[in-house]
Write a protein that binds this DNA or RNA. Sequence first.
DNA 1: CGTTCGCCAATACAGTGTATCGGCATGAGA
DNA 2: TCTCATGCCGATACACTGTATTGGCGAACG
Lengths: 230, 230
Amino acid sequence: MTVWDRPEPPARPVPLDRERIVAAAVALADEGGLEAVSLRKVAARLEAGPMRLYGYIAVKEELLDLMVDEVYAEILPEERAGDWRAALGGLAHRTRRAALRHPWLADLLGGRPALGPNGLAVTEATLAALDGLADVDTVMRAVETVSAYFTGAIRREVAELRAERVSGLSKREWQRASGPHVTAMLATGRFPALARAVHDGADGDPEVSFTTGLDWVLDAVATRLTRASP
Amino acid sequence: MTVWDRPEPPARPVPLDRERIVAAAVALADEGGLEAVSLRKVAARLEAGPMRLYGYIAVKEELLDLMVDEVYAEILPEERAGDWRAALGGLAHRTRRAALRHPWLADLLGGRPALGPNGLAVTEATLAALDGLADVDTVMRAVETVSAYFTGAIRREVAELRAERVSGLSKREWQRASGPHVTAMLATGRFPALARAVHDGADGDPEVSFTTGLDWVLDAVATRLTRASP
DNA sequence: CGTTCGCCAATACAGTGTATCGGCATGAGA
DNA sequence: TCTCATGCCGATACACTGTATTGGCGAACG
């Protein structure tokens, strides 16, 4: 028996806490997507048995919630935003960038209420930025409408990004890209408007698409906020 | 050995096709959510072995795509919509109602491009309703912005609905509802705006919330469409 | 009638989330 | 200091997942 095959002494267990667990899970997800996050792998990364985690979380779902809340820390505004428009727009852009850094976030976004401390802090900051501009219900509607927009937009962007990755081509080359299936469909002539859109549409910078749509929504919010100032 | 424990003769295999498979999967998901959809259970419902399904689908993901496309059939407009606003608004509402009938749809919405025949048909109908109102890119932007809104809004609504179901209470009773955790958080005083919103906000009909936000977004689209008529 | 081919079911495998149990190390009590 | 209790950690176990592989059987064909 050499030093090579003598097993490591079981290495006095490193103390664990939620932070380290969540960090490991996030790292795993960043590397291999959400499906790479299993309790066993998270535990292994911390040199612990899978069951150790159950001292800190009750079910796996809870770990996912914690991961989301961890990322909400990156979304928190550093300083008090200028006006409401900057606040909502900044929130949207920070969320988008966070989702581009952590694509798995798109799978979880809006999937369940963000009730963790950072999630709450983000909502708090957002509401505070709109406070007093209109009655409570209008403010809520404004925040929810903008959130709905950027949640949906981010999801689609990430989804398309993944689809492009597997086919290796841009949306412009969609037809050839996503296999012969869609090409055949378009060739049937049953989707003339869609075919024209695919043919004539320029696929610009996703960021400007996002920003443009966001501006539209913010404009809509603006008219309602100014109209109903309390 | 009685008639009771004599096993059924293996029952000459019922012929299978994608439609029957997808229908079974949708039924399963309607009853028990997405997590109740396993290849084994789908196959069992069709009195077949799990491996039979691989004659019709390549991977499970494909089955999920087919399920989504199946529901898109319910979203297809029956008749040519009146104006563009009716088209987009109708699409939003039909999608929402479909998601309320099939809550698992919310988990999948926007998760990947809807490239099935019904999904394409829905996009086609939508684009056709906006055709000629502006240049192609503006029309695309309009459709995508509205879609982003209602996708996000539907996801949040279903998510809240589920959260309410597990706690048995309405969003108004959020604090007491979602366990002591959120209550404690709000009680810390670190979230004054949020606390006020929860306290003062009326939680109205989700449908009117949805419709109100939708109207805002449609208004925004309206100004861009009329401004940039080709 | 004999052979081959294609399909279906059974088996197998690696991996999942989680419940349960056994042992060990530590702290309390005598 | 010795004994006992306690709490925690790892191993084991279980039911279940998606999917690859294999074996056998019925039907089509020479």
